[in-house]
């Protein structure tokens, strides 16, 4: 129903866990839904040469990123019989243990929702111009690359 409308994906800082609960609550009136599938990306305390990552500072080519997010949504709605889909991605500093990506799809049945969420996550990692500066405890940094 709202699948054609471009949506704002980026949020400043970490995604609060309450947002996940609220999103679920907001879909309880949509009784044609039988399954939600959720992916949550959390910033990991990677160790590199004896130094530990304490946070990732995200930046993006925002105009292009919002357009690519929209294209991924359109492709997902064309490919999967999903009722709705929501994506949120952080910009700015997100500490380890906090959430930086929230993908939420809903469908009548579980397999479609699970496959659609997986599609979103893989497409986002491959195609959206987002950059991550991994900050270590001694304030040095390195640039993250998606594997």
């Amino acid at each position: 129903m709202d699948k054609k409308k471009p949506k704002k994906v980026f949020v400043q800082g970490a995604i609060p866990p309450e947002k996940i609960a609220n999103s679920v609550a907001n879909h309880q009136s949509k009784t044609n839904i039988g399954a939600h599938s959720i992916f949550l990306g959390q910033v990991r305390a990677d160790e590199v040469d004896g130094k530990t990552v304490t946070a990732i500072d995200y930046t993006a080519y925002e105009e292009m990123a919002e357009n690519v997010f929209h294209e991924i949504r359109e492709a997902a709605f064309a490919k999967f019989d999903i009722t709705c889909a929501h994506i949120y991605h952080s910009l700015g500093k997100v500490n380890v243990g906090e959430l930086c990506l929230f993908v939420f799809t809903s469908s009548a049945h579980r397999r479609i929702a699970i496959e659609a969420t997986n599609f979103f996550v893989e497409e986002i990692k491959a195609k959206v111009p987002v950059f991550g500066k991994e900050i270590f405890e001694d304030e040095t940094h390195q640039w993250k690359v998606n594997k």
Partner: peptide
């Protein structure tokens, strides 16, 4: 000019 993507 876009370095490797690191979203998610």
């Amino acid at each position: 000019l876009l370095p490797p993507f690191a979203g998610g």
